[in-house]
Design a binder for these strands. Structure first.
Lengths: 211, 211
DNA sequence: GTCTATAAAGAGATAGAC
DNA sequence: GTCTATCTCTTTATAGAC
């Protein structure tokens, strides 16, 4: 275990390397990103990179752990709030979007480059992600049982529909684009909650979904 | 221009190679898939592969063109139907999902590996995709103008929310999973249209969205 | 902790026979 | 249209000096 020195900005070399790797992995993909390039952008020689990590995959693994820790902590803050299940769900949606778009590089790499991890590391990340997804399922179920969300779809299927809508935004979102992460979070919360509210608009044929 | 011979199943070697490449590109990504592997799965030698294509990128490019041609043709069939704008939109959603999940390999590769194409080819595919997206925008706008969809969000933002929800399914969908593409299409159409219908559920605070 | 130099393997693509 | 053999370049990773 090496003592991690820190530069003037208080950032360890290791975490700087992870940030650089995340940026490149999001932009070009894990396989198309070379260790030379990571070292170059970080301003060190390639051999120096291997003083900080053992393999290129280490960067992807640690980046995934960081990203999941971060979004889990953000979710904790929301889930422990007062209020109805659907109010917490709305807040969770907004926090999820703000987090993945605010830390776009790390979350994009985590969500899309997982297949490039060695099996053991991948399995661990998948398990962590399932823990996060399970808590969303529980919140959706609670909202259904409280009569706040429609009960004619399974919580798991609604969670998948929701995360679909939130996560794909990492592909096209640009920090200098028309809408902020917060605005997009509000929009998606609005569309999803209106679409799954128990108080349905008058469209009788769709009250009972045939899934 | 070579005469394309066909094997007993009536499939040209070239289209078989594209199908094999799509499968591997979806599973491992473009950069992580080797030409040796493509040739091996197709049952030929690597040198033979280069009799049919000039570069590895050709496979990705043609696969994208095929995928977009296919989904565009499917959309044409829906857009020319009789019925209200929202009815056509519902049908379009179901056709979109059935197409991308029914031809998962090609559409996943087209949607996620585009960055691996050379600039010229990528630009052409992006233009084709924009044409498809524009037609969705027009249909959403028509539904808004007809008073069938809520008008407090821009058509472009609603289209992005919709395609987010539909496209991310390519990451987790498995043909042997719980739901068929058709079932998922109905679910997503239901959630999106209920969420964006002009007849909103009674939740006064969300009638005017602050975007 | 960083460097120069290099090893060892794998990649895309081609030559030329059949 | 397919093959064996090979070229050339790039890749990940390591050796060992400072």
């Amino acid at each position: 275990m090496t003592t991690r020195s820190r530069n003037e900005s208080g950032e360890s070399t290791r975490s700087r390397l992870i940030a650089v790797a995340a940026e490149l992995f999001r932009a070009k993909g894990f396989a198309a990103t070379t260790t030379r390039e990571i070292a170059s952008v970080a301003g060190i020689q390639k051999a120096t990179l291997y003083h900080h990590i053992r393999r290129k995959e280490d960067l992807l693994y640690e980046l995934c752990v960081d990203a999941l820790d971060h979004i889990s902590a953000a979710a904790d803050g929301v889930l422990s709030r007062e209020g109805s299940a659907v109010e917490r769900l709305r807040a969770l949606i907004e926090v999820h979007v703000a987090t993945i778009l605010g830390e776009r590089d790390q979350h994009a790499a985590m969500l899309t480059e997982l297949r490039s991890l060695p099996p053991d590391a991948r399995a661990e990340i998948v398990t962590r992600r399932k823990g996060y997804e399970r808590r969303i399922d529980e919140l959706i179920s609670a909202a259904q049982e409280a009569g706040e969300l429609r009960g004619d779809f399974e919580a798991k299927d609604l969670r998948l529909a929701l995360l679909n809508m939130l996560n794909w935004a990492i592909f096209w979102f640009r920090p200098d684009g028309e809408h902020s992460p917060e605005e997009l979070g509000k929009l998606y919360a609005e569309v999803f909650l209106a679409g799954t509210s128990r108080a349905l608009p008058e469209r009788p044929s769709s009250q009972q979904a045939a899934l």
